[in-house]
Design a protein around this nucleic acid. Structure first.
Lengths: 148, 148
DNA sequence: ATCTAATTGCGAACCATTTGCAATAAGCTG
DNA sequence: CAGCTTATTGCAAATGGTTCGCAATTAGAT
Protein backbone atom coordinates (compact mmCIF):
# COMPACT_ATOMS: atom_id res chain seq x y z
CA UNK A 1 0.00 0.00 0.00
CA UNK A 2 1.42 3.30 -1.10
CA UNK A 3 1.81 6.30 1.12
CA UNK A 4 -0.92 8.14 -0.73
CA UNK A 5 -3.34 5.23 -0.29
CA UNK A 6 -2.60 5.24 3.42
CA UNK A 7 -3.60 8.90 3.57
CA UNK A 8 -6.78 8.14 1.73
CA UNK A 9 -7.60 5.32 4.09
CA UNK A 10 -7.25 7.40 7.18
CA UNK A 11 -9.43 10.12 5.72
CA UNK A 12 -12.09 7.61 4.76
CA UNK A 13 -12.02 5.65 7.97
CA UNK A 14 -12.16 8.79 10.04
CA UNK A 15 -15.36 9.76 8.27
CA UNK A 16 -16.81 6.28 8.51
CA UNK A 17 -16.29 5.14 4.95
CA UNK A 18 -14.67 2.10 3.44
CA UNK A 19 -11.47 1.81 1.52
CA UNK A 20 -12.39 0.17 -1.77
CA UNK A 21 -10.73 -0.66 -5.07
CA UNK A 22 -12.47 2.01 -7.12
CA UNK A 23 -11.76 4.67 -4.51
CA UNK A 24 -8.10 3.80 -4.37
CA UNK A 25 -7.85 3.85 -8.15
CA UNK A 26 -9.59 7.23 -8.48
CA UNK A 27 -7.49 8.67 -5.73
CA UNK A 28 -4.22 7.52 -7.28
CA UNK A 29 -5.13 9.14 -10.55
CA UNK A 30 -6.15 12.46 -9.07
CA UNK A 31 -3.34 12.58 -6.56
CA UNK A 32 -0.82 11.57 -9.20
CA UNK A 33 -1.77 14.21 -11.70
CA UNK A 34 -0.65 17.79 -11.92
CA UNK A 35 -3.58 18.86 -14.01
CA UNK A 36 -7.30 19.36 -13.84
CA UNK A 37 -9.08 16.28 -15.09
CA UNK A 38 -12.63 15.60 -16.11
CA UNK A 39 -14.52 12.63 -14.71
CA UNK A 40 -14.20 10.94 -18.06
CA UNK A 41 -10.44 11.43 -18.14
CA UNK A 42 -10.14 10.09 -14.64
CA UNK A 43 -12.29 7.10 -15.54
CA UNK A 44 -10.12 6.38 -18.54
CA UNK A 45 -6.96 6.43 -16.45
CA UNK A 46 -8.62 4.33 -13.78
CA UNK A 47 -9.69 1.74 -16.31
CA UNK A 48 -6.15 1.21 -17.48
CA UNK A 49 -5.43 -0.15 -14.01
CA UNK A 50 -8.78 -1.84 -13.48
CA UNK A 51 -11.14 -2.03 -16.46
CA UNK A 52 -14.12 -3.06 -14.36
CA UNK A 53 -14.45 0.29 -12.62
CA UNK A 54 -17.54 2.09 -13.72
CA UNK A 55 -17.94 5.76 -14.56
CA UNK A 56 -20.60 6.21 -11.90
CA UNK A 57 -18.21 4.95 -9.26
CA UNK A 58 -15.73 7.53 -10.43
CA UNK A 59 -18.37 10.22 -9.97
CA UNK A 60 -19.34 8.84 -6.60
CA UNK A 61 -15.77 8.70 -5.42
CA UNK A 62 -15.11 12.24 -6.57
CA UNK A 63 -18.22 13.50 -4.82
CA UNK A 64 -17.16 11.80 -1.62
CA UNK A 65 -13.59 13.09 -1.84
CA UNK A 66 -14.95 16.57 -2.42
CA UNK A 67 -17.07 16.31 0.70
CA UNK A 68 -14.08 15.15 2.67
CA UNK A 69 -12.06 18.05 1.35
CA UNK A 70 -9.59 15.80 -0.42
CA UNK A 71 -10.20 17.05 -3.92
CA UNK A 72 -11.44 20.28 -5.40
CA UNK A 73 -14.01 20.69 -8.10
CA UNK A 74 -13.79 23.54 -10.54
CA UNK A 75 -15.57 25.02 -13.46
CA UNK A 76 -13.07 26.24 -15.97
CA UNK A 77 -15.56 27.77 -18.36
CA UNK A 78 -19.21 27.68 -19.26
CA UNK A 79 -20.29 24.54 -21.10
CA UNK A 80 -17.22 22.70 -20.02
CA UNK A 81 -17.35 19.58 -17.95
CA UNK A 82 -16.34 19.90 -14.34
CA UNK A 83 -12.67 19.37 -13.63
CA UNK A 84 -11.16 17.85 -10.53
CA UNK A 85 -7.80 18.21 -8.93
CA UNK A 86 -6.16 17.57 -5.59
CA UNK A 87 -7.47 19.97 -2.96
CA UNK A 88 -5.59 23.23 -2.72
CA UNK A 89 -6.18 26.42 -0.76
CA UNK A 90 -8.26 29.29 -2.10
CA UNK A 91 -5.23 31.56 -2.40
CA UNK A 92 -4.19 29.40 -5.26
CA UNK A 93 -6.23 30.49 -8.20
CA UNK A 94 -6.47 29.53 -11.84
CA UNK A 95 -4.92 31.13 -14.87
CA UNK A 96 -6.28 29.83 -18.11
CA UNK A 97 -4.62 30.63 -21.41
CA UNK A 98 -7.16 30.91 -24.16
CA UNK A 99 -4.50 30.23 -26.79
CA UNK A 100 -2.82 27.07 -25.55
CA UNK A 101 -5.62 26.06 -23.20
CA UNK A 102 -3.25 25.39 -20.34
CA UNK A 103 -4.52 25.98 -16.83
CA UNK A 104 -1.96 26.98 -14.26
CA UNK A 105 -2.09 27.79 -10.61
CA UNK A 106 -1.03 31.08 -9.28
CA UNK A 107 -0.58 31.83 -5.64
CA UNK A 108 -0.79 35.28 -4.17
CA UNK A 109 -2.14 37.06 -1.16
CA UNK A 110 -4.71 38.92 -3.22
CA UNK A 111 -7.37 36.39 -2.50
CA UNK A 112 -6.69 36.66 1.20
CA UNK A 113 -6.92 40.44 0.88
CA UNK A 114 -10.31 40.15 -0.69
CA UNK A 115 -11.47 37.90 2.11
CA UNK A 116 -10.35 40.27 4.84
CA UNK A 117 -11.76 43.26 3.03
CA UNK A 118 -15.16 41.63 2.71
CA UNK A 119 -15.11 40.49 6.28
CA UNK A 120 -13.91 43.78 7.78
CA UNK A 121 -15.94 46.21 5.72
CA UNK A 122 -18.97 44.29 4.66
CA UNK A 123 -19.53 41.60 7.24
CA UNK A 124 -19.33 38.96 4.54
CA UNK A 125 -17.60 35.82 5.76
CA UNK A 126 -16.07 34.04 2.81
CA UNK A 127 -15.84 30.30 2.97
CA UNK A 128 -14.69 29.70 -0.54
CA UNK A 129 -13.14 31.80 -3.24
CA UNK A 130 -13.08 30.80 -6.85
CA UNK A 131 -11.00 32.94 -9.11
CA UNK A 132 -10.50 32.18 -12.74
CA UNK A 133 -8.48 34.50 -14.91
CA UNK A 134 -8.67 33.88 -18.63
CA UNK A 135 -6.22 35.48 -21.01
CA UNK A 136 -2.93 34.96 -22.79
CA UNK A 137 0.01 33.40 -21.03
CA UNK A 138 3.49 34.84 -21.44
CA UNK A 139 4.58 32.21 -23.95
CA UNK A 140 1.55 32.53 -26.15
CA UNK A 141 1.69 36.34 -26.14
CA UNK A 142 5.25 36.11 -27.44
CA UNK A 143 4.64 33.66 -30.19
CA UNK A 144 1.55 35.50 -31.37
CA UNK A 145 3.25 38.86 -31.75
CA UNK A 146 6.07 39.76 -34.11
CA UNK A 147 8.80 40.67 -31.65
CA UNK A 148 12.04 42.65 -31.84
CA UNK B 1 -39.99 51.34 -29.18
CA UNK B 2 -38.34 51.71 -25.80
CA UNK B 3 -34.96 53.24 -25.24
CA UNK B 4 -33.50 49.87 -24.31
CA UNK B 5 -34.83 48.30 -27.51
CA UNK B 6 -33.21 51.07 -29.50
CA UNK B 7 -29.87 50.23 -27.90
CA UNK B 8 -30.36 46.62 -28.74
CA UNK B 9 -31.18 47.44 -32.33
CA UNK B 10 -28.08 49.48 -32.91
CA UNK B 11 -25.90 46.77 -31.40
CA UNK B 12 -27.53 44.13 -33.60
CA UNK B 13 -27.52 46.17 -36.78
CA UNK B 14 -23.93 47.16 -36.29
CA UNK B 15 -22.99 43.50 -36.17
CA UNK B 16 -25.19 42.60 -39.11
CA UNK B 17 -28.05 40.94 -37.28
CA UNK B 18 -31.79 41.46 -37.32
CA UNK B 19 -34.00 42.91 -34.69
CA UNK B 20 -36.65 40.30 -34.00
CA UNK B 21 -39.49 39.75 -31.60
CA UNK B 22 -37.81 37.01 -29.56
CA UNK B 23 -34.61 39.03 -29.30
CA UNK B 24 -36.43 42.09 -28.09
CA UNK B 25 -38.35 40.05 -25.55
CA UNK B 26 -35.25 38.35 -24.19
CA UNK B 27 -33.42 41.62 -24.04
CA UNK B 28 -36.17 43.39 -22.13
CA UNK B 29 -36.19 40.65 -19.54
CA UNK B 30 -32.46 40.58 -19.01
CA UNK B 31 -32.02 44.34 -19.13
CA UNK B 32 -34.96 44.84 -16.82
CA UNK B 33 -33.79 42.49 -14.13
CA UNK B 34 -31.38 43.12 -11.31
CA UNK B 35 -30.62 39.49 -10.79
CA UNK B 36 -28.93 36.56 -12.44
CA UNK B 37 -31.42 34.50 -14.35
CA UNK B 38 -31.31 31.05 -15.86
CA UNK B 39 -32.39 30.48 -19.45
CA UNK B 40 -35.53 28.82 -18.16
CA UNK B 41 -36.40 31.79 -15.97
CA UNK B 42 -35.83 34.15 -18.84
CA UNK B 43 -37.97 32.01 -21.11
CA UNK B 44 -40.75 32.02 -18.55
CA UNK B 45 -40.72 35.79 -18.30
CA UNK B 46 -40.53 36.11 -22.06
CA UNK B 47 -43.51 33.84 -22.52
CA UNK B 48 -45.69 36.04 -20.36
CA UNK B 49 -45.28 38.71 -23.02
CA UNK B 50 -45.28 36.38 -26.01
CA UNK B 51 -46.14 32.73 -25.39
CA UNK B 52 -44.93 31.62 -28.80
CA UNK B 53 -41.27 32.26 -28.08
CA UNK B 54 -39.35 29.04 -27.85
CA UNK B 55 -36.73 28.08 -25.33
CA UNK B 56 -34.15 27.50 -28.04
CA UNK B 57 -34.63 31.02 -29.27
CA UNK B 58 -33.94 32.23 -25.80
CA UNK B 59 -30.70 30.26 -25.78
CA UNK B 60 -29.81 31.53 -29.22
CA UNK B 61 -30.51 35.12 -28.29
CA UNK B 62 -28.47 34.84 -25.14
CA UNK B 63 -25.57 33.32 -27.04
CA UNK B 64 -25.67 36.14 -29.55
CA UNK B 65 -25.91 38.83 -26.89
CA UNK B 66 -22.96 37.28 -25.13
CA UNK B 67 -20.93 37.41 -28.32
CA UNK B 68 -21.85 41.03 -28.77
CA UNK B 69 -20.84 41.77 -25.20
CA UNK B 70 -24.34 42.78 -24.19
CA UNK B 71 -24.86 40.18 -21.54
CA UNK B 72 -22.62 38.18 -19.29
CA UNK B 73 -22.78 34.50 -18.60
CA UNK B 74 -21.78 33.13 -15.25
CA UNK B 75 -21.45 29.90 -13.39
CA UNK B 76 -22.55 30.36 -9.85
CA UNK B 77 -21.71 26.89 -8.65
CA UNK B 78 -21.01 23.42 -9.95
CA UNK B 79 -24.09 21.56 -11.19
CA UNK B 80 -26.07 24.74 -11.46
CA UNK B 81 -27.49 25.99 -14.70
CA UNK B 82 -25.75 28.95 -16.28
CA UNK B 83 -27.02 32.35 -15.20
CA UNK B 84 -27.20 35.47 -17.34
CA UNK B 85 -27.21 39.10 -16.49
CA UNK B 86 -26.61 42.40 -18.18
CA UNK B 87 -22.94 42.84 -19.06
CA UNK B 88 -20.83 44.38 -16.34
CA UNK B 89 -17.11 44.96 -15.97
CA UNK B 90 -14.79 42.38 -14.46
CA UNK B 91 -14.12 44.54 -11.42
CA UNK B 92 -17.61 43.76 -10.36
CA UNK B 93 -17.53 40.33 -8.88
CA UNK B 94 -20.02 38.00 -7.27
CA UNK B 95 -20.76 37.38 -3.65
CA UNK B 96 -22.96 34.41 -3.03
CA UNK B 97 -24.50 33.76 0.35
CA UNK B 98 -24.81 30.07 1.02
CA UNK B 99 -27.52 30.67 3.58
CA UNK B 100 -30.00 32.86 1.75
CA UNK B 101 -28.74 32.06 -1.73
CA UNK B 102 -28.64 35.67 -2.75
CA UNK B 103 -25.99 36.74 -5.25
CA UNK B 104 -24.77 40.29 -5.02
CA UNK B 105 -22.26 42.33 -6.90
CA UNK B 106 -19.29 43.84 -5.26
CA UNK B 107 -17.03 46.33 -6.91
CA UNK B 108 -13.48 46.88 -5.88
CA UNK B 109 -10.10 47.53 -7.38
CA UNK B 110 -8.79 44.19 -6.24
CA UNK B 111 -9.58 42.59 -9.52
CA UNK B 112 -7.75 45.32 -11.36
CA UNK B 113 -4.81 44.82 -9.02
CA UNK B 114 -4.70 41.16 -9.88
CA UNK B 115 -4.73 41.98 -13.57
CA UNK B 116 -1.85 44.42 -13.34
CA UNK B 117 0.12 42.10 -11.12
CA UNK B 118 -0.24 39.24 -13.56
CA UNK B 119 0.62 41.46 -16.49
CA UNK B 120 3.61 43.19 -14.89
CA UNK B 121 5.21 40.25 -13.14
CA UNK B 122 4.14 37.25 -15.12
CA UNK B 123 3.43 38.43 -18.63
CA UNK B 124 -0.06 37.09 -18.40
CA UNK B 125 -2.56 39.33 -20.18
CA UNK B 126 -5.96 38.85 -18.61
CA UNK B 127 -8.97 39.27 -20.82
CA UNK B 128 -11.57 38.13 -18.38
CA UNK B 129 -11.72 37.67 -14.66
CA UNK B 130 -14.33 35.63 -12.93
CA UNK B 131 -14.42 35.86 -9.20
CA UNK B 132 -17.01 34.12 -7.11
CA UNK B 133 -16.89 34.38 -3.36
CA UNK B 134 -19.16 32.03 -1.47
CA UNK B 135 -19.88 32.53 2.19
CA UNK B 136 -22.28 34.14 4.65
CA UNK B 137 -23.62 37.60 4.05
CA UNK B 138 -23.83 40.10 6.89
CA UNK B 139 -27.53 39.57 7.45
CA UNK B 140 -27.37 35.82 7.53
CA UNK B 141 -24.35 35.81 9.84
CA UNK B 142 -26.35 37.92 12.29
CA UNK B 143 -29.50 35.89 12.28
CA UNK B 144 -27.56 32.66 12.58
CA UNK B 145 -25.55 33.70 15.61
CA UNK B 146 -26.81 34.71 19.04
CA UNK B 147 -25.46 38.22 19.25
CA UNK B 148 -24.89 40.70 22.08
C1' DA C 1 -16.13 -18.25 8.17
C1' DT C 2 -20.12 -15.57 8.69
C1' DC C 3 -22.89 -11.59 8.56
C1' DT C 4 -24.56 -6.88 7.45
C1' DA C 5 -24.47 -2.67 5.57
C1' DA C 6 -21.87 0.07 2.41
C1' DT C 7 -20.51 0.13 -2.12
C1' DT C 8 -20.55 -1.17 -6.85
C1' DG C 9 -21.89 -1.97 -11.85
C1' DC C 10 -25.31 -1.50 -14.84
C1' DG C 11 -28.79 0.69 -17.43
C1' DA C 12 -32.04 3.94 -17.49
C1' DA C 13 -33.30 8.61 -16.24
C1' DC C 14 -32.31 13.37 -16.01
C1' DC C 15 -31.37 18.09 -17.05
C1' DA C 16 -29.42 21.87 -19.42
C1' DT C 17 -28.15 22.94 -23.79
C1' DT C 18 -27.57 22.34 -28.88
C1' DT C 19 -28.85 21.05 -33.48
C1' DG C 20 -31.19 19.91 -38.10
C1' DC C 21 -34.70 21.25 -40.74
C1' DA C 22 -38.77 23.09 -42.76
C1' DA C 23 -41.64 27.16 -41.98
C1' DT C 24 -41.59 32.09 -41.03
C1' DA C 25 -40.47 36.82 -41.11
C1' DA C 26 -36.89 40.99 -41.30
C1' DG C 27 -35.50 44.28 -43.95
C1' DC C 28 -33.64 45.22 -48.41
C1' DT C 29 -34.99 46.60 -53.49
C1' DG C 30 -37.83 48.37 -56.85
C1' DC D 1 -46.54 48.33 -50.85
C1' DA D 2 -45.26 43.68 -52.97
C1' DG D 3 -41.66 40.62 -53.88
C1' DC D 4 -37.36 38.47 -52.73
C1' DT D 5 -33.52 36.67 -50.15
C1' DT D 6 -31.64 34.98 -46.29
C1' DA D 7 -31.48 35.20 -41.29
C1' DT D 8 -34.14 33.58 -37.79
C1' DT D 9 -37.54 30.78 -35.57
C1' DG D 10 -40.23 26.77 -33.61
C1' DC D 11 -40.25 22.26 -33.07
C1' DA D 12 -38.71 17.86 -31.93
C1' DA D 13 -35.02 15.02 -31.58
C1' DA D 14 -30.11 14.54 -30.23
C1' DT D 15 -26.46 15.41 -27.12
C1' DG D 16 -23.36 15.23 -23.17
C1' DG D 17 -22.44 15.38 -18.50
C1' DT D 18 -24.13 13.67 -14.34
C1' DT D 19 -27.31 11.18 -11.25
C1' DC D 20 -30.26 7.41 -9.74
C1' DG D 21 -32.60 2.80 -8.62
C1' DC D 22 -31.68 -1.59 -7.86
C1' DA D 23 -29.82 -6.13 -7.56
C1' DA D 24 -25.24 -8.15 -7.00
C1' DT D 25 -20.89 -7.69 -4.68
C1' DT D 26 -17.55 -6.86 -1.11
C1' DA D 27 -15.28 -4.45 3.10
C1' DG D 28 -14.64 -4.94 7.45
C1' DA D 29 -16.65 -6.18 11.98
C1' DT D 30 -17.80 -10.41 14.90
Amino acid sequence: MTESTRELRSALVEAGHRLTGPRIAVWEVVAGSESHLTAEEIAEAVRSADPTVNLSSVYRSLALFTDLGLVRESNLGANEATHWELAHPDEQFHLKCKACGRVEHHTGDLVTQIESHLSDHHGFKASRVELLVTGMCAECSQSHSSNT
